[in-house]
Design a binder for these strands. Sequence first.
DNA 1: CGATAATTGTTATGTCATATACCAATAACA
DNA 2: TGTTATTGGTATATGACATAACAATTATCG
Lengths: 179, 179
Amino acid sequence: MGVRKSNRDVASSTEGMRRGRSTARSATVDEAEEATAGPDALDLSGLNAVVGYALRRAQLAVFEDFIARFATLDLTPAQYSVLLVIGNNPGRKQAEIAAALGIQRPNFVSMLDELERRGLAERLPSATDRRSHALVLTKAGSALLARARAMQDEQERELAQKLGPGGREMLVALLQRLM
Amino acid sequence: MGVRKSNRDVASSTEGMRRGRSTARSATVDEAEEATAGPDALDLSGLNAVVGYALRRAQLAVFEDFIARFATLDLTPAQYSVLLVIGNNPGRKQAEIAAALGIQRPNFVSMLDELERRGLAERLPSATDRRSHALVLTKAGSALLARARAMQDEQERELAQKLGPGGREMLVALLQRLM
DNA sequence: CGATAATTGTTATGTCATATACCAATAACA
DNA sequence: TGTTATTGGTATATGACATAACAATTATCG
């Protein structure tokens, strides 16, 4: 079952992505392709109509922006999501947090190792089950999460601006219908 | 997969009652919720508000569906996109096709190797530049692409149905604004 | 009760997507 | 012409992700 395969190609970085967060966009791929196209412009009309392709590219763009913003905190999107969920659900065991985030438990181990190494999260012994660990944030972890939340809120605001009035909520609602 | 399915946002609880370690009461409250070994749901409200998270999950869901559909054709999303772009732009060189798809040229080599091995695409010598290859689809490649297109159209229709009237176009338009 | 099954965290390992550095051949250019 | 850029390719590193197996522990049920 190749649930995990596929190399969602799509533009990840390099040329196409270098525009960063500038809200000033001169021409979209669509426009460039329809504008009688120069001799070297490729016809991408087939792809632009594909929801999956647009989804992939948009996701990469947003994640790239996220990573750039969070570089100062040295947090990846995955790490941020882990801190967030632990913060909102302290005391839960690894398996629960991992499952909630769709992370395989084996892969979650090293993620937690790293967060623990950086003094952001802790594995406390569970009082009721000697197998499991109760995950909590340290003070430093909570502090970092607070800063991260603020940064994330800022990104969300800028995205909302890009998306126009009500666009953000509309987008999230539409995305929700795909899951 | 990487994404859990049933993530009821619920939220609730707001962790006001999150017992840290004090098991002054029977810990049954923790486990006696669901019979399926599922304790009470976690609070994921923080994540559900994040555009990037919704984007990632939706993209994974759509790609997973795509992969399942295309299993009979043995085509990944990336391979489909390559066939599509070559088909719409025959005779272009590798670097152009790769760049259009955001694929690094080194990574594009093995992708083409595979498509060529399967007799779907061909590297023809360029008449004007002995360095470059002119990429084209074979007959088999065109035939497969036609079948793939039909499948893709079907997925698009089902997505449109999920998204409601005008939802698909709205979604694509919003996604376009993020890139 | 006790045997068996299930869960938890973990290690080991494999695959796949993607990035960079470098190269030889060729072309473009100043 | 000599220098630089491009093209396709190789080699390689790095993550993200998956599965198998395991010891310790807990749950289940006859």
